[in-house]
């Protein structure tokens, strides 16, 4: 009986997810250029947030340097495409492989020498900053001046991943959908179970036969590879990449704000969090500009983070789920009472 109720809630979850993404697709067909470009960023950071969420929310490993992997992906696509005319599809693949490898090496070295938890997180910052400075001083990739894509001609070309703003909106929407569905699938797979076990209690997981060392390396590597794919597309959408912006601390923070605000370890959290935080960030930026108060957007970010951590420590999405449950339960209770009364 419990198993059938599991299946019922599975169907419900997937149905709800499909509805949300169908609605987002309709929004993409109808909205104006400003909303489209804003939502494209929201959806891209939903995907990037999922990548980060996989590592901390499911695997239990904290990264504050995800900009490293985002940057590797962006540069892989840009170098191949701008310098050699290679399709971004190859660049995305290559970027994912390189970032996955870099992530695995970083994790292997770190965990091999017992650098864990917050110390591992510090190491990720150091690695990202090292890469940012290295790319800034590397003339071949444009140094601090960065790399520029050719202005899009406006005709859609799926093979070269070029098109107008609406095209990129749908690319980002597809990535976000893959991110949400992928998180859901992974967290209910063999990997998901053993990763969550090692997240909750490393020693107890090992006592149950989980080879936590290799699984930690694996989760960091997969998270890095997916972050690189998001980074590659982010570079294409922005039309240019600079080490300070694509590999800077700001990207690492932008990546984690969605899952932290929306709900760590959940499939929908990063989407909900990005939807809440990024438009607010932009609106406050615009308001700050018009009021002559630069930095208002960062203040807003900080305020949202503090409020969420204070009042909804597991994030917005779990709070919505709890609220929904609280409305549902009494309703079910009343129905069963009515049935009893009828009998």
């Amino acid at each position: 009986m419990q198993r059938t109720s599991d299946q019922a809630s599975d169907t419900k979850r997937w149905g709800a997810g499909a509805l949300v993404f169908a609605a987002l697709a309709m929004v993409g067909g109808m909205s104006n250029a400003y909303v489209i470009s804003l939502l494209t960023i929201v959806l891209l950071f939903t995907f990037l947030g999922q990548s980060w969420n996989l590592m901390l929310g499911i695997g239990g490993q904290l990264s504050i340097g995800h900009a490293l992997f985002v940057g590797i992906g962006a540069y892989a696509v840009a170098i191949l495409n701008i310098k050699y005319g290679v399709t971004p599809w190859i660049g995305l693949l290559l970027g994912a492989v390189i970032a996955g490898f870099v992530g695995a090496v970083l994790a292997w070295l770190s965990f091999r020498f017992e650098v864990r938890g917050i110390y591992f997180a510090l190491l990720t910052i150091a690695a990202a900053e090292f890469a940012r400075i290295m790319f800034g001083g590397w003339d071949y990739v444009g140094g601090m001046q960065g790399l520029f894509y050719q202005a899009p001609s406006g005709t859609m070309d799926l093979g070269m991943l070029r098109g107008d703003a609406r095209f990129y909106y749908f690319v980002a929407l597809a990535l976000a959908a893959i991110g949400v569905a992928g998180t859901e699938l992974i967290s209910r797979s063999y990997w998901g179970y053993v990763w969550r076990a090692m997240r909750d209690d490393d020693e107890a997981a090992r006592a149950l036969g989980v080879r936590t060392f290799r699984h930690k390396v694996l989760v960091v590597s997969i998270s890095a590879a997916t972050a690189a794919i998001g980074g590659g597309v982010l570079g294409l959408v922005q039309g240019a990449i600079f080490p300070d912006s694509i590999m800077g601390m700001a990207i690492s923070v932008d990546v984690l704000i969605g899952p932290v605000v929306g709900g760590l370890g959940t499939a929908f959290g990063p989407l909900v969090g990005s939807m809440a935080a990024i438009p607010l960030h932009h609106a406050m930026g615009a308001l700050g500009d018009s009021l002559g108060l630069p930095g208002l957007n960062s203040v807003a970010y900080g305020a949202v983070l503090i409020l969420v951590v204070w009042f909804l420590p597991d994030g917005i999405w779990p709070a919505i789920v709890r609220l929904y449950g609280a409305i549902q339960l009494p309703a079910r209770g009343r129905i069963s009472q009515l049935r009893k009364a009828e009998e």
Binding site: D200, G209, V210
Partner: peptide, 16 residues
């Protein structure tokens, strides 16, 4: 494992 259900806790060992 505090964020996993009773069943999920019992599943972890089987993945060995």
């Amino acid at each position: 494992m505090k964020d996993m259900s009773v069943l999920e806790n019992a599943m972890v060992g089987a993945f060995s």
